[in-house]
Each structure stands twice: as C-alpha cells, then as structure tokens.
Design a binder for these strands. Structure first.
Lengths: 121, 121
DNA sequence: CCGCATCCACGATGATACTG
DNA sequence: CAGTATCATCGTGGATGCGG
C-alpha cells in the first residue's frame, strides 16, 4: 500500500515539494518568518481563507516535520506560539525568491497584490 | 461559487505556489529543463510514478499557464515535444535552489537520492 | 505513439458545533 | 484562546478502454 513515508523518495525536487508543498504551508512559514513568532489566532487572521481545522492540521504537519516549533503556555486562556526552526529558516530564501517571482508575474498580469502587513515590532 | 481563477489571489507567495504547486509540476519542469526538450513518453519514463492521465492533465495545465510550450508534429506515429517557456525558465533557479535544500536535508536523514540522468547531449 | 474519455475510490478540504 | 469532533463535499488521481 501507498507508502506515505518520505523515505522512499527519490528525486530531491520531489522530496522538497512534498515537505513544503500543500495549500498553506508556504504562506504559514512566510507569515511566521515575517513576524518571528505568531499565535494560533494571529495566524488565522493572516491567512484569511483557512479554516480552524486546516490550520491545526497543517501546523501539526509542519511541527512533526521539524519545520515549526510549537510552544504552549499553561495558562487560562491558552496561549500557543509558533516559530520557525533552523530547518525552515534555511528555507526562507527560497520562499522569498519565489515570492519575488510571483510579484513580477502578478504585475505583468495586473493582478492586485495584497501585502501581508508584518507587525514589525 | 469557488473562483478557481487566480485573478482574485492576494498574497504573492500564495500565487506562486498555486502556479508551480501540485504533485508533479516541479519535477516536470525540472526534467524538461535538464533535457531541454522532452517527448511525452520520455517524460513518462522519467517520472515513474505518474499515470498517463495525470501527465496529460498536468502538462495541459502548465501549457495553459504559459509555463510550457507544446509542439505537435503531424506525423504517424505522433510526436509531441515539450519545452520551457521564458516564464518557466525564469523559475528554474528557484527550483534548483529548492532542490539543493532537499539534497542537504536528505543527506542529513540518510535518504538515498536518485539523480535524474539528464541525457546530456 | 500520444493522447482523450469514462468511471470510480479516496483523501483532502470545508462548514459547523462543541470543549478545556 | 486554541483547538476537537463530526459530517458533507469536492477534487485528485488511479484503472481501463478507445482513437487518430
């Protein structure tokens, strides 16, 4: 049966796409990078078209895949923070370049670009 | 209803991922780049885990999205060649960078890497 | 040889309600 | 606040057969 496990992967391009592919992974990493640290609710507000379920699920995948660090504060109300790991930090240059490529293309096609307002401290 | 159209896209990261995301797009572009031009059957042999249907479908998407150029030779038996466009060529550096990141990670995890044998002429 | 058409299974995603 | 649980649905992709 379908080995979902990445161990049997062959091509590096394939491997990389499996790790950061998916509908929201790129954007999540990018937003966290821009803010250094984000809480669950903040992320949800940044990525407006994601549901609670998908956000939770994707965050878990990224965490299990060692691309996100999750810190839970044992408080009431709860507080959970997400940060990049060293591995995902090493991925940022790529995402950024891809983003610049996207901007170039979008300008060519006159597609309005929504910049994510990084709450730069 | 669900606007599949990319026109309403907002974030450039999202835009870029939509264009080259997907299970096979990255690999297809990469293989064609490595060989400059590939025929349908050659592509299918390179990407061993793809079905005829998915290959056809993905190639169409890439073509419609201006990331592939398709040339049909009116012969019997048929012959169809696929090449990169200027737009997808401008994308290659990023794919390559992503690939290098993948290679680094795979080495860390001792995952065997299958190099695609580019039939360098 | 290079596809396209059809049918079908299943996983991915969405909507909504509920909880510690 | 940060999720979980459940149900419905939609798209992706596989299998097969046909056709120029």
């Amino acid at each position: 049966m379908k080995e979902k496990n990445i161990k049997e992967t062959i091509c590096a391009v394939d491997y990389a796409f499996r790790r950061i592919g998916g509908k929201y992974k790129g954007r999540i990493l990018w937003h966290i990078y821009n803010n250094e640290v984000l809480r669950f609710g903040e992320l949800k507000r940044h990525i407006t078209d994601i549901t609670t379920k998908m956000l939770t699920q994707t965050l878990r995948e990224l965490e299990n895949d060692n691309l996100l660090f999750r810190k839970v504060y044992p408080e009431v109300p709860p507080k959970v923070e997400y940060r990049l790991t060293d591995v995902s930090k090493s991925l940022i240059p790529f995402i950024n370049q891809l983003r610049e490529w996207g901007i170039t293309q979008m300008k060519k096609e006159n597609i309005p670009i929504r910049e994510h307002e990084a709450s730069k401290k």
